[in-house]
Design a protein around this nucleic acid. Structure first.
Lengths: 168, 168
DNA sequence: CGCAAAATCATCCTTTCGGGTGACGCGCGC
DNA sequence: GCGCGCGTCACCCGAAAGGATGATTTTGCG
């Protein structure tokens, strides 16, 4: 029986400890009961002895209970304290398009797509074939996106798009 | 009486709650004692009644103690220390031109310079003005570098040059 | 539904690019 | 000196790119 992931292992440790505590607790109770029984015969029977015994038992078990309660939660506390939040500052991994910039420039998804294909070095004709539209449509899209970017050439558009983090 | 900062407010709440718990605890004990006293006179006195009462008291106070112990430490759990570990993956490294690739492709310094200016989005005319040569010269350089890179368009040349690490 | 934005396609025109070719000068090494 | 690489410049021509404008269809949304 294995526990591959850390959480399961933690739970197991917890249960084991709890069981140990319960056993200890029961043993303590038994000893106390025996002690009471012993005292009942040896000691003088005074008035309110039941109340005294009861209070004694209550006090002992209460402190034991508090101790146990603290003890039980301490383990939980320990696992919760080790909260390591890894904050990745600069991830060179995946490119995320700057959506804000796209919106602020008013660039539509289609235009951004054409922009990306332009950046890949494709001609208008190749782009048209790639996205299944006429070359005129590609020219319209590119013209619009150049206008929105403030570019006069496709190379300039690519440069600006990379600066604005619109394309990888 | 106000508590401006959260930490002080927490501590006070803690003490207040603790006191409240102790009071509640005492009250519960008193009620139980009274209950036991009441039962002592009304119920038939059986053998081991003391043990039964003791066990009862023990059980009640033990559970109450556990509850109290958990309750007391739960507050402490709130002040868990969150370890924020910032992991810097990769700093924006300085660009170094791949000289080997440059040589293997047979690209001359002047051609590489023109290539860089093309990548910046400049037109042939602008490049010519920048490097003080005629536009025809720029065209010759660009034509040559396109041929060496295997590019048919300047955008494609830029793409390939970036792949080959010839330009930033 | 009706409107507006987006996407589509077209036409005309100008500019830019890219390919091809040829030529000239300069420095360097054989 | 001669060849060679490099940089320079010129001309021509076709292709590609870019600008301007208009129109139609599709689509998302109140």
């Amino acid at each position: 029986m294995t526990f591959p992931d850390p959480p399961a292992a933690h739970i197991r440790t917890y249960n084991f400890r709890m069981r140990k505590h319960v056993l200890l607790y029961g043993l303590l109770g038994g000893v106390l009961i025996a002690g009471l029984k012993f005292i009942e015969y040896r000691w003088l029977v005074v008035e309110y002895s039941v109340e005294i015994y009861g209070g004694l038992v209550a006090a002992v078990f209460a402190s034991a209970g508090i101790w146990l309660g603290v003890r039980l939660t301490r383990r939980t506390r320990q696992t919760e304290t080790v909260v390591v939040r890894e904050v990745v500052v600069a991830a060179p991994t995946k490119f995320v398009c700057d959506q804000q910039k796209l919106v602020s420039l008013g660039i539509t998804p289609r235009e951004r797509e054409i922009l990306g294909l332009i950046a890949e070095g494709l001609s208008n004709k190749e782009i048209a074939a790639r996205v299944f539209v006429s070359e005129n449509t590609v020219k319209t899209h590119s013209s619009r996106v150049f206008d929105k970017l403030g570019a006069r050439r496709r190379t300039q558009a690519v440069q600006l798009a990379k600066e604005f983090r619109l394309i990888p």
